[in-house]
Structure formats: C-alpha cells, structure tokens
Design a protein around this nucleic acid. Sequence first.
DNA 1: ATATGTGCAAACTGTTTGCAGCCGC
DNA 2: GCGGCTGCAAACAGTTTGCACATAT
Lengths: 143, 143
Amino acid sequence: MNTPNDLFIEELVAKGIRPSYQRVRVLEYLHRKDSHPTVDEIFNALAPEIPSLSRATIYNTLHTFVDAGLARIINIDDNELRYDLTVSDHGHFKCDSCGQITNFSIDLDRISVGELQTFNIKERNVYFRGLCPNCLNNQSGKE
Amino acid sequence: MNTPNDLFIEELVAKGIRPSYQRVRVLEYLHRKDSHPTVDEIFNALAPEIPSLSRATIYNTLHTFVDAGLARIINIDDNELRYDLTVSDHGHFKCDSCGQITNFSIDLDRISVGELQTFNIKERNVYFRGLCPNCLNNQSGKE
DNA sequence: ATATGTGCAAACTGTTTGCAGCCGC
DNA sequence: GCGGCTGCAAACAGTTTGCACATAT
C-alpha cells in the first residue's frame, strides 16, 4: 500500500535527504498547511505528537529543506521567517490587521526586467501588504 | 540661502516630524545612500560624527519615518531589516555572493492581480535573489 | 562501527522597552 | 516649565551553535 507518508519519504530521498521521522513530519505539515508557517507554528503543531521534539530540529530540518531546494524562505514578516514549499509561482499577501497570509498566482517570468539581463536571477519574490477583505469589512470605520 | 539640510528639514516638517539634528542626519544619510542601509550601517556611518548617537535613536527615527510614510522597510535580508526612502516604484535584487542590493525599476501596477481585487493593497514589494554580474565573472568556475 | 540526526542548553544578534536626563519650544 | 527626544542599559525574541546521546545503516 502507498500511504501519504511514503510519498513524502520519496520526496525526501529524491533530494538526497534521509527521511527521518521528524523530517517526514515537518514535510507533511508543510504540505498540509499552505499558510507558510513560522518555526514556532510548526513546533507547536508537532510537539504534542512528538514529545521529544526540539526547536533546533525544526531549524535544522528547514535549513536542510531550503538547501535542497525543497522549501524556500518567505521573508514577509518583519521579525520571524516563514517557510514555503517551492511550488508553482505565486506571490504572497500579508494582511496588516489579522496577519493572515494569502497566496495569489502570478506569472513571475512576465515581470522579468531588462535592466537585470546580466544578472543571474535565482529567485523572484512578490510580497504585497494591506488589508484583506475580512478585515476591511470588520473595521471599515476605524483606522 | 538654501542648504541641502533645509530641504530635509522641510521634508520632515511637512510630514509632521520635528526636525531634530539626529533625524535630519539620518534622513540625509538615506538620501545620500540609496543602498537601503541596515540600522547598523547607519549607526556606524553617523556615530563618528555624532559621538553621543545611540542605536535606539536610529530605531526610533526609522520607526517615525516609516509611520509617517517617509521610509519603508526592505525585508530582503534573512536577519536584519533595511530601510529605503519611499520613492518611485522599484524592485530590489540581492546578490547571494556579495550581498549588494541593486534597484531596478518596475511597473508595480502592472503586476496587480485579479485574485486580489477585494483586497486593499497598500504596498507592493518585489525581491529578487541571485548573482550580480560582478560575482558571476569573479567566480564563474566555482560554486 | 560509523555516519548522521536529534535534543538540550547556552550563546548570539537584532530589536524593543523603560527610564533618567536633556533640549527646544 | 512642559512635552518630546535622546541615550543608556536591560530585556526580549528568534536563531544559531556545541556537544552528548540516540538512531539508522
């Protein structure tokens, strides 16, 4: 039988990463939540199920993923880093009020720039900021 | 006579910010360097000329500027924040090797997204990453 | 048996905060 | 004289590091 975990294990092995239990669980969490969690969110979500889990392991794991090109850093927050599986091109919108991050699809190649023709562009990030529809409605009056 | 400083003072007053000596100097530095300095860079550049200067003042000043819409935060670095005067739309490219940040002009309105029609977008950021021409030449062989 | 991964705690770094003194209106 | 700004030092938060123990091949 082919459990979902098998797929994650394959995904790791394909990138040359040993599929330890913790790594599989972190990868699984990233797949399940497409909300670009912070290290803390990942830790808090998994710690109850993996009592021995350490924050350092989350950091190690995410660095491993980023180095292998499996994940990327989303630097939309002012203070803490978020992580995202590297999937098809999309931008990120962060609501100033509720902090929620929304994906939107965007053709990143279309925003290539002539000025940068002599540059080797490895990654394109598009971060928007503002108010999401929910917060617009809830606080339409006040600041 | 109209010294450059007078212009900076006007700029601050126009935004309702008291033009203290420190603030004028920070603003002047931001105008002089369009390289999106970090707090540390600003501090190290100004400290010799303003011996009493404190890092906290730089932080205070930049927050004041950001709140007034005079400056914006550039979050292209993984760890520390950079600051940029809010000028005409441009994106930022950061070289993985030398860390240099290069501006490029980009029509940010053109990358508006249908999906976000119900969102109130206040700020659009475009961050690219990769290798700049210099570093491409210098290390063309090696990783 | 050996390589590698994990978990803990301490160290580090950038940022924030509280407060006393100072300066400008 | 009063309100606001500065500067210092301590606190904080997120991240990194070093090392001992555990784990997998």
